[in-house]
Every structure is written in C-alpha cells, then in structure tokens.
Amino acid sequence: MPLKIIVGIKWVPNTTSVNIDPKTGTLIREGIPSVVNPHDLTAVEMALKLKDRYGGTVTAISMAPPSALAGLEHVIGMGVDRGILASDRAFAGADTLATSYVLSKVIEKIGEYDLIIMGHETIDSSTAHIGAQVASWLRLPYVYYAVDIEYNEQDRSIIVRRMLENAYETYKVYLPAVVSIAMHTYEPRRVKVSNKLRAKTEDVIQVWTSKDLDIDINCAGLRGSPTVVSAIDFVPKVPRKNLVFKERDPKKAAKWLIDQLIQEGLLEL
C-alpha cells in the first residue's frame, strides 16, 4: 500500500531579513517578503523522498491568509500533489493550540492518511508545538527530531531514526503517526517547471473556510487561543571588547584566545 502523506507548512516572514530600526528600536516589518518556513521545506523534502521510494501521495496543508497560496504553489512546484489552505477570518489571531486545532480538523476532513510530517519549528516563532499538538488532537503517536524514516509495508509501520545530542534513537511506530523532522536534515529540492505549471493550471489547490470544516468556533482563532503575550523584553546588549589577534600562527592564536578567555573569567584550566 503506497503512503498517503500529509505535510504541514507555514508561510512566514523571512525573518533572516528582519531588521531593527536603530532609532526606534522596533522591528522594521515593511516589505519583508514571506517564504515557506525553511524547516517545513525539510519536512516536504522528507515527504517527497518517501513518495519517491514507496509511492503514494503528498498533500500539503497550511492555515493562513490567502497570500500563503504562493507557498503552496512553491511546494507543489517541488512535487507535492495537492495543497489545502485553511483560510478564514475566524482563524486569525491563533496561537499554537488554535492553529493545531484547525490543522487537525483539516487532516480529519482529508480523512485518508498514513503519515503526517511537520517541520521541527518555525523561524518566526520557534515554539515547536504544532507537531505535538496535532498528534494530541488526533490521538496519534508522535516522534520528533527525526532524521530518517523507513516504511514497512507488511505491518504498516515506520522505523524512525531520531537524533539526540550524542546518539540516535530508533523507534518502530504503527501508522498513522505524526513525525517532525530535525532541522537541516535535507536540502529541499528545486521547483520544476512542469509542477509549477500544474499548480497554476490544474485544480490542485483548495481553500477551505470554517464552513468547510467541522469546527467549534470557540477553539479557533483568537477565541481558541489561551496564550497571552504580556510583555516583550529585549535582551540587553552585552558590551563587546572587539579584540583581534593579528599574527598568522594558529598555535599562537589558540594560546592567545585561551589566555583572553581565562582573563575574562570565562574559562578555567
């Protein structure tokens, strides 16, 4: 039986490019283009690798305003079969709980699936909540920080290798299951012109609103979001000494660096 894979993507501001106004100290948001969360592209790549190896389908899902269609077009360009965007004003202002709720409802509506793959976290909020929460809503097993997945067709299970700080763990998990992928495990493949053309000319992207989904409106959007951001404190700037070692001898450089660190009380020998 080929694998039916669902992969979650988030359309995020390219935070690598967000600057702080030196005068006001606030973020400059003007004109920051959005991208598919890079860690989700890793998840998409994992899904496509599994599809290449075992056959099946990959469906990308996202919850976002309509501008995120460009993100779904991008992953369809990479080879994802179809995209579903959950988009509704009622979903606005969601924290991770309300987001994972809507995504789980999207997955329930898709109905037939074996494996749900997520990126480990997003570059704009870094909570790493969504995978675990979607698994909870759907009452599915969840393995996170996976670097490799093998599929066993006989007993419909996967062998997941999980990366720890100094070891790998291997799990056998019966499907359906949720897996989030460790950052930078794979480089995402390039878009193909045939796939991009399919995204534009064939009916492969659907937009679902709250009406299309069996949703308790009190669990979605701002209403379904218990998280409150009470204040944001900036980390105080640490003064830098800016010392430069100018000679070329690496041994001397290492010695010099160690001496400096000891002097600063940052290193004990």
Partner: peptide, 10 residues
C-alpha cells in the same frame, strides 16, 4: 547590505 533581503540558496 543588512537592509536587503535574500533567500540564500544552499
């Protein structure tokens, strides 16, 4: 350059 935006390729 810090004011510019890239999506750097790998």
């Amino acid at each position: 350059l810090n004011n510019d935006v890239w999506d750097v390729d790998y």
